[in-house]
């Protein structure tokens, strides 16, 4: 299936979700799921429409498509992106740690702090997993 058709289908699915969420709210039943439908629907609709417009523009301009492909596969760009992500990860570990401490001092609900701790540990765990995996692969 063509990429542009896939994006259109995605946009349509997003629109359906968005409209369903709106109708759900208008029916008077106010719940989290309706707001979730609107949020997720709007996101999918935007992503689908954006992708479709990009595909349309690039299909008329093969030179720009070629340049875009070079930019995304360029080894220096990939290295820069990986380095930036690594720096962001390092910063995230400190930011998460500080947030946990601040939340504990603010006496925020234990469930919220535990969720944050679980997220923090999951991120660290994923880091360790990939470190070991890449050590075996490379």
């Amino acid at each position: 299936m063509k990429k542009s058709v896939l994006y259109l289908l995605l946009a349509a699915a997003g629109a359906v979700l968005l409209i369903a969420g709106g109708l759900w709210l208008r029916s008077g039943v106010e719940n989290v799921a309706a707001y979730l439908c609107i949020g997720v629907g709007a996101g999918i609709l935007g992503h689908g429409l954006g992708g479709w417009l990009q595909e349309r523009a690039l299909s008329k301009d093969p030179e720009t498509r070629r340049r875009l492909e070079i930019e995304t596969s360029d080894e220096r760009n990939i290295i820069l992106s990986c380095r930036a992500k690594a720096k962001a990860y390092d910063a995230m570990v400190y930011i998460f740690g500080t947030l946990m401490l601040v939340f504990a001092l603010m006496r925020v609900d234990v469930a919220a702090i535990l969720l944050l701790v679980a997220g923090y540990l999951a991120v660290c765990g994923i880091g360790v997993y990939y470190r070991i995996r890449y050590d075996k692969e490379i």
């Binding site: 070079i70 930019e71 596969s73 360029d74 080894e75 220096r76 760009n77």
Partner: peptide, 26 residues
């Protein structure tokens, strides 16, 4: 040169300035 090698112009610029060392493939 960038077009011929399939890399960005910035990569060639960085290589020439000595700011970037290429992969063995490049």
């Amino acid at each position: 040169l960038a077009d011929a090698l399939g890399v960005s112009r910035q990569t060639i610029g960085s290589l020439e300035n000595g700011r970037y060392n290429p992969s063995i493939l490049l």
